[in-house]
Design a protein around this nucleic acid. Sequence first.
DNA 1: CTCGTAAAGATACGGTTCGTTTCTTAGGTC
DNA 2: GACCTAAGAAACGAACCGTATCTTTACGAG
Lengths: 195, 195
Amino acid sequence: MAGRRRHGEELERAIHAAVLAELEERGYAGTTYDGVAARARTSKPVLYRRWPTRAELVLSALIARGSATLRVPDTGSLRDDLTGMLRSLGRILDGVADRPSMLRLLAESEASRAESLRTLLLARGAELLGPVLDRARERGELGTHPLPERALSLPFDLVRHEVLLVGRADPDVDSMVTDVVLPLYTALSGAPDGS
Amino acid sequence: MAGRRRHGEELERAIHAAVLAELEERGYAGTTYDGVAARARTSKPVLYRRWPTRAELVLSALIARGSATLRVPDTGSLRDDLTGMLRSLGRILDGVADRPSMLRLLAESEASRAESLRTLLLARGAELLGPVLDRARERGELGTHPLPERALSLPFDLVRHEVLLVGRADPDVDSMVTDVVLPLYTALSGAPDGS
DNA sequence: CTCGTAAAGATACGGTTCGTTTCTTAGGTC
DNA sequence: GACCTAAGAAACGAACCGTATCTTTACGAG
């Protein structure tokens, strides 16, 4: 019936847009091949040729949309920098998709997609911590001992845990920073100020 | 055809057993009302009358089985006590069900079932930490300052994050204890030994 | 023991989603 | 202009869903 027929980039962009729209409206559970095909005005075989499972289809669309970048503030205080970063992460995690969708996507994603998922969950946030800590050291807020990997990823792990597992869309970042991260970093780095 | 007809307790035990068996064999995604009804030798209406959703049905069976109790060791060393508890938690989390099933159950569970889920995920593990810390204080491994709630739940949160979100069935408990929990507890409690 | 009733259990239904197959036809390539 | 890959349409059998209908069993009140 309809005349022209889309290919390559153009087609995939339309499909991705349809997936995101369905995801928004119906959630992961309600996002079906039939529904996506209809909305993108294409057909199921076109989808199946590219993405063998719903998880891959949805993941592909989410990745294509591009992950938001973590805000790395420079407030002049380690506490405020950390608080800012973690709040930013919380908003990002909450913004990718609703929690049930995220959990189910995680449940159905193959291990081979680990890297894509890590991108999605901002697991690399810890890498952005370096400059923040360097500035804190220059200000004398921290000592000079290097922090172990586990300590660096800790604040981000806590936010992920709180948003995705506990289900708190607005995690209590203050208690994380005050009760855990700051005391730990101070102790581990060989704090200049004992108290 | 068959003569006798089960009721109440007896019937529900049979259903729960069937759910657990299906869950074991096919995972959450493959556990259907049809399948459970067939295996329990009953019918779908019997299931739907009791549990309106798959999540409630499965959760009910898991809760009924009873959650394993966390091992609280007394080794004479805070490090070893913590390590033992966390390894125990890791095994329990890994043993409730496979990761995809756990995540999907979480995804589909209503907020109203939060308490049951907390039981399932051993969120109350932090409460068992009290005696362990008391003993450590008596031995002089920790100072006398009380630890904030966030710090108490921290080790358990880390294990849950690692097992369920990162997907490591055997989490790296050593680095958690060495790089995070011990230094933090020492610092927060007003460590008697500075180093 | 009798009878009323609540629940078990069997069956069948219409509907949706799944994943695949078949076939036609448009569009990019040489 | 001919070729060939892939888009798109349509239809399929199967599985699962959630519900409705109807019969039959077990329990309990009297």
